[in-house]
Computed example of a mutant assay.
Amino acid sequence: MSSIDIGLVGVGKIARDQHLPAIDSSPDFRLVATADPYTRLEGIDGYDSLAAMLDGVPDLQAVAICTPTHLRHSQARLALEHGKAVLLEKPPGATLSEVEDLEALAERRGCPMFAAWHSRFAPGVAQAREWLAEREIHRIEIEWKEDVRVWHPGQAWIWEPGGMGVFDPGINALSIVTEILPQPFFLRSARLAVPSNCQTPIAAELAFSDAQETPIQAAFDFRQTGPQTWDIHVDTEDGRLSLTQGGSRLVIDGQVVLEAEEREYPEMYDHFAELVTGRVSDVDVAPLRHVADAFLLGRRETVDAFVE
């Protein structure tokens, strides 16, 4: 199969840290252009906007959109209207309505669209899903805590409406849990700790349950220092399953089943190549819906101002 010519929209931290290395190592994609008003890559055609890139590279087959969420709807619409396959960095939009509009447009145009939940491609996720599918689940505990100063330095947009605050990493945990659990679950209550100078939470405590009232507790915190915590524990009739290190380590009933190097973004681009080739979409809004529910039901508590 010949390589897929792809353009990258937004050359910020996530694009430099993850998308560029994944595209560079992929046998399926060839980066031919970028769209960013502030950044150029040596040896790659650079444009100030997506519109300019689409005009300048009319044979482009796909675009990966890595801009802040409030920009993604208009950019994805433009790419789809030009007949391009679209990969959306998580979350796929600022609102559920935006994503639904894009999904409908992608279907009308026959263009593949991929809501790319990268954490679902962590090494232990698929095996965890298979093991849990045949077992009775008693309880789930999620602990997702990291240092915002390390992962989002100088990124003030994360504290503005649409930036999601601690749900920017927290949605990664939700993307895994919605993938590995065999049935849907629902938010029952939430506490959101919002700094006095911010619009989005720096920490959150969430209580979910499924139709069988299985308790699911989640604790998200952006104030973690030292070692970072990305753990999910599921108690079942046959013992505890633990996905730790963001899903790179799988332990079942005290035995290490899998411990592998993280390759989320390369695996994610492998899947996108399959979607582009097969002309199909993969758009799941369940993680974003849970975040929207948290903002809807959550009790807000004002905490100390955030100072970077």
Results as ranks from 00 to 15, higher is better:
residue 68 P to A: 05
residue 187 L to S: 07
residue 290 H to L: 15
residue 217 Q to E: 11
residue 196 S to N: 12
residue 149 R to E: 13
residue 300 R to D: 03
residue 294 A to S: 14
residue 29 F to K: 11
residue 218 A to S: 10
residue 37 P to A: 10
residue 190 A to G: 12
residue 203 A to T: 10
residue 20 L to K: 15
residue 273 A to Q: 02
residue 278 G to K: 11
residue 66 C to A: 12
residue 37 P to M: 13
residue 134 E to W: 03
residue 79 A to L: 09
residue 25 S to H: 09
residue 205 E to H: 12
residue 100 E to V: 01
residue 20 L to R: 06
residue 147 D to S: 11
residue 164 M to F: 08
residue 120 R to P: 00
residue 216 I to A: 01
residue 177 V to M: 08
residue 19 H to M: 04
residue 226 G to L: 08
residue 3 S to N: 13
residue 4 I to S: 08
residue 231 D to W: 09
residue 100 E to I: 02
residue 234 V to M: 06
residue 56 G to E: 15
residue 238 D to E: 13
residue 189 S to F: 04
residue 146 E to C: 06
residue 244 T to F: 03
residue 34 T to D: 04
residue 193 A to I: 04
residue 87 L to N: 07
residue 178 T to E: 06
residue 13 K to Q: 12
residue 44 I to G: 07
residue 144 W to N: 00
residue 138 H to I: 05
residue 308 E to V: 02
residue 244 T to G: 05
residue 69 T to Y: 02
residue 240 R to N: 10
residue 287 P to F: 07
residue 264 E to R: 09
residue 223 R to N: 15
residue 76 A to V: 14
residue 103 E to S: 11
residue 129 R to N: 02
residue 253 D to F: 03
residue 42 E to T: 07
residue 216 I to P: 00
residue 198 C to T: 14
residue 31 L to Q: 12
residue 292 A to H: 14
residue 224 Q to Y: 06
residue 83 G to E: 09
residue 83 G to F: 08
residue 294 A to D: 04
residue 228 Q to I: 07
residue 230 W to R: 10
residue 126 A to E: 14
residue 45 D to Y: 02
residue 83 G to K: 12
residue 276 V to D: 00
residue 194 V to Q: 03
residue 285 V to G: 03
residue 203 A to W: 04
residue 162 G to M: 10
residue 91 P to Q: 09
residue 80 L to P: 01
residue 84 K to V: 04
residue 294 A to P: 03
residue 132 L to N: 14
residue 277 T to A: 12
residue 259 E to G: 00
residue 141 E to F: 02
residue 285 V to I: 15
residue 22 A to S: 14
residue 226 G to Q: 12
residue 176 I to A: 04
residue 169 P to S: 06
residue 262 E to R: 12
residue 33 A to Y: 03
residue 101 D to C: 04
residue 70 H to G: 03
residue 227 P to W: 09
residue 52 A to E: 15
residue 143 E to L: 07
residue 47 Y to P: 01
residue 263 R to Y: 02
residue 13 K to I: 10
residue 289 R to M: 05
residue 192 L to V: 10
residue 99 V to C: 10
residue 175 S to T: 07
residue 184 P to W: 11
residue 244 T to Y: 02
residue 48 D to P: 08
residue 281 S to T: 03
residue 188 R to N: 15
residue 248 S to N: 13
residue 117 W to F: 09
residue 223 R to E: 15
residue 34 T to C: 09
residue 86 V to H: 05
residue 219 A to E: 14
residue 227 P to H: 08
residue 161 P to H: 09
residue 121 F to D: 01
residue 50 L to H: 12
residue 58 P to T: 08
residue 73 H to S: 07
residue 295 F to H: 13
residue 73 H to L: 08
residue 255 Q to H: 11
residue 72 R to W: 04
residue 154 G to C: 08
residue 39 T to W: 04
residue 205 E to T: 09
